[in-house]
Computed example of a mutant assay.
Amino acid sequence: MSKVHVVTEIYIYPIKSLAGISLQSAKAEEMGFVNDRRWMLIDAENQMLTQREHRIMSQFYPQILDGKINITFQNQKHEFSIDESLDDTLEVNVWDDKSKVVEVNQETSKWFSLHLGFECKLVKILNNGARKHESSRLKETFNVSLADGYPYLLIGTESLDFLNDKLDEKITIKRFRPNLVVSTENPHEEDDFKTFSIGEVQFKNIKPCGRCVMVNNDPENGRLKKEPLKTLSKYRNVDNSVLFGTNIVSLNSGIIAVGDEVVF
């Protein structure tokens, strides 16, 4: 890792499992980038909803403007304020973690229910500390958002290029829903990153990220395909987990931007 590594892309996903937003800069916090996966859809039994079961969720596109989140689905639009919520606190599960959340408003929940075709609610994580995630590997507990596990996912550019060389139909980095894309020299060298800094922020690598069938959902059209999981499983299967990208946490808050160098 002698050459300069720089940030090439930054993404946030305000609502879990919906489409992401590409940014030129973002503020990193303990829970993840500001407004990253602070919201989530839950069903009538208060169970989280994801693209794993509802691929159409990839076709809802958020944007953030003037303190509001605007959602576009097909030719329909809806917006709500980043700060708004109802009073009643709910406790929901994000995998094995309990999280305290609040419903945004009934109108927004009805809008998503209409377009998804079943009853659901849009909820927001209550605050920092409302969900804690324990790393069995590090024996540490982290305050996290509504992401599957850790606040940040980092992927090296060579990892995608190496995979695409093996695929008949090339894919984009959007399949893997990273927060940070970093220029690299070798495929999957990000697995071995330890502690490093980007801009004002110091990060720590937790572990490579195990991938599920969700990466086979084409974000352009919501169609399920056989790749890239089929090919990845041939050379990235470790202990029955297909690895791509790595989970990291931030050790402080601060601004990072596209073009920032990764300092080891």
Rank of each mutant, 00 (worst) to 15 (best):
K139L: 12
K132H: 03
L146S: 09
K132T: 12
N143F: 00
N164H: 06
G156Y: 06
Y152E: 09
I125Y: 11
V144Y: 04
D165G: 12
L154M: 15
D165W: 06
L163D: 03
L153N: 04
G156T: 05
N127F: 15
E140L: 14
D161V: 13
A130L: 04
S135D: 08
W111D: 07
E134G: 09
L160T: 02
F118T: 09
L116Y: 06
N127V: 14
F118K: 11
T141A: 10
L153F: 00
N128G: 00
L153C: 04
I125S: 02
R137N: 07
L138W: 15
N127K: 15
F162A: 02
E140Y: 11
H115P: 01
Y150G: 08
N128H: 07
E134P: 11
D161K: 10
E140G: 03
S135N: 11
F142L: 08
K124F: 15
G156V: 06
H133L: 09
R131C: 02
N143K: 05
S159Y: 11
S159N: 09
S145Y: 02
A130Q: 08
L146I: 05
D148L: 05
F162K: 03
L114G: 00
K166P: 00
N128K: 12
C120G: 10
E134T: 15
R137D: 05
R131A: 03
S109M: 08
A147M: 00
K166R: 12
V123H: 04
D165H: 10
K110C: 02
E158I: 06
G156E: 06
F112G: 13
L163Q: 12
L122F: 12
L163R: 13
P151T: 03
E119S: 12
S113W: 15
R137K: 07
T157K: 04
T157L: 05
A130V: 12
G149D: 13
S113K: 08
K166L: 14
L122W: 11
E158C: 03
S136Q: 13
K132G: 01
W111C: 13
V144E: 00
S136H: 09
A130G: 03
S135F: 04
E119D: 13
T157E: 12
R137C: 02
E140M: 13
K121S: 15
E134H: 14
F162E: 15
G129E: 15
G117M: 11
I125R: 00
H115Y: 15
C120S: 14
K139Y: 08
K121W: 12
T157V: 03
G156R: 04
S159I: 07
L160N: 07
A130H: 05
Y150E: 07
E140S: 07
N143V: 01
G149Q: 02
S145M: 05
L160H: 07
E158D: 04
I155A: 08
F142M: 02
L116N: 08
G149K: 00
L116H: 04
G117H: 13
L146Q: 03
D165P: 00
S109L: 09
V123F: 06
D148V: 05
N164L: 08
E119N: 07
A130K: 00
K166A: 11
C120D: 08
D165M: 11
